[in-house]
Design a protein around this nucleic acid. Sequence first.
DNA 1: TTTTCGACTCAAAAACCAAATTAGTCTAAA
DNA 2: TTTAGACTAATTTGGTTTTTGAGTCGAAAA
Lengths: 197, 197
Amino acid sequence: MDKKNHIIEAAKGLIGRFGFKKTTMEDIARAARMGKATLYYYFKSKEDILREIIEREGNRLRKKLLEAVANGRNTREKLEKYTFTRFHFLRELGVYYRTIKDELYSHLEFIEKERKKFDRFDLDILEKILKEGMEAGEFKIKNPRYYAFLLLQAIRGLEFPILTGEALSFESREIDLDKALSTLLNILLYGISRSEA
Amino acid sequence: MDKKNHIIEAAKGLIGRFGFKKTTMEDIARAARMGKATLYYYFKSKEDILREIIEREGNRLRKKLLEAVANGRNTREKLEKYTFTRFHFLRELGVYYRTIKDELYSHLEFIEKERKKFDRFDLDILEKILKEGMEAGEFKIKNPRYYAFLLLQAIRGLEFPILTGEALSFESREIDLDKALSTLLNILLYGISRSEA
DNA sequence: TTTTCGACTCAAAAACCAAATTAGTCTAAA
DNA sequence: TTTAGACTAATTTGGTTTTTGAGTCGAAAA
């Protein structure tokens, strides 16, 4: 298990720097100071190593998100902590995500699977936040899961440029994303009319 | 000028069906029933034909959008007409856009230019809608252009899947985008709390 | 028994080259 | 002013060889 971690760490570094295709099994073996065949004792394929890395990163982010949300006192705070956490994690992972995305023309099924898992998680957590808001009497909506979905897409509209590596710019200045996110939350919660009240 | 239109139409059909690279100048010449050299009398290069097509489509969309918005009686209606028009145009153009995007690994500068032109246009029109809303006493915000920007990004979050060709799905059912867009506008205008009032 | 490795295979990718296409030009004629 | 046929130079294609790298195996070390 400890060895497995060791391999994962080595692989993560290399893949992050050079991309998945450019990183060879020999490279990983060398970085982990062991023979190539040994890797196959712990992992059944090169793809399997990537699968594990992605799975772990996913779990790490989910854990972070749950912790972040737990600390919020009301809907506003929870949403803010949620989006910020998500956001900084994505930024941190950005390069990684992109190199992999670019290389894997053919999207691997486990990446697709992880993406779906995350979609569900996002919806679950947002739905929960909305339901708690309703219980606290903050507002009343009929279909919280549908609302969660719309919120999620709206938020993604802002974070999308990060994933593609473009800068989000407004009036040709690069934008402060935390601030933008915060204002967007205000709009979503209170509406344009009341968002500055 | 009429000949130019004729060429553009021929080219548009072919490029739409087979993509930009697969369509040869001879193909276009044949479809327009003229010699290849004639094309070069009207256009300085193959790229130049594409440039003109894109520019024209852009103008057509902008015109449609202006018309749509002009018919709205209040902010809500204007935004709805705006987003719906945008949206259906994008869907119609989807295939076109995608084949070109896929082929032009290297993004051409005139496409980038058109994209920027559109960004500005979007901001301008949304800002105008918001300002008119303020004048009508519907709401009061400090920085309408910044708000226009946030609105735009939020809306893009919903329409993005169209551009990439994915279906936007919620709970594994494909979603009615007009309806989703409409609800999102409610949220943006009135806030979650009041969006169902 | 569990773990590691060097040496091997084979499928896929890179490198290479020749042949064919095709964007763009030119000259001349309608 | 507009059109076209013949031409060129650059790019793309298709087919071949070479190299690389994922994955296996059997033996040895721990």
